[in-house]
């Protein structure tokens, strides 16, 4: 699972409607995997990302390359786009857990695939 995916997932336990994003990583195994740089793709994603959530998630993972706020010229800031590319598209979570900050539900990641399924009583 790439970090861009994590930025788009949230807890969906019944009744858990506030403070349920971003999910907090625990015991994660990270891996860097090179991907081809595509500036247009990154530009498209600038408005789709929850940037604050991305930065706070990265800091907890020990990734501190991203500026605290998105640069005003982000779309044409090559240095920023390269960092963003490395962080959201080349950083993979192989295994670990994602925990809802509100209801503490645990979502597991195995084989690089997040499992968002809930038990019957949680739906």
């Amino acid at each position: 699972m790439r970090l861009i995916t994590h930025n788009m997932l949230q807890c969906h336990v019944k009744g858990c409607n506030a403070n349920n994003f971003p999910l907090e990583f625990q015991e994660v195994e990270l891996e860097q995997e090179e991907a081809e740089m595509n500036e247009d793709f990154l530009r498209n994603m600038l408005t789709k990302l929850e940037y604050d959530a991305l930065v706070s998630t990265c800091l907890k993972l020990g990734i501190n390359d991203l500026p605290a706020t998105m640069p005003a010229d982000a779309a044409y800031n090559d240095e920023f786009l390269q960092i963003l590319h490395r962080v959201i598209l080349e950083t993979h979570v192989k295994s670990g857990k994602m925990i809802c900050p509100n209801c503490k539900h645990i979502y597991n990641i195995r084989d690089g695939i997040p499992n968002m399924l809930l038990a019957e009583h949680e739906v």
């Binding site: 699972m1 790439r2 861009i4 995916t5 788009m8 997932l9 949230q10 807890c11 969906h12 994003f21 991907a35 929850e50 598209l89 979502y107 695939i113 997040p114 499992n115 968002m116 399924l117 809930l118 739906v123």
Partner: peptide, 16 residues
């Protein structure tokens, strides 16, 4: 490249 999620239909994607 695809982003794969193990889930029921679209669970975990809304409202984000």
């Amino acid at each position: 490249s695809v982003e794969i999620i193990e889930t029921h239909l679209i669970s975990g994607l809304l409202p984000r």
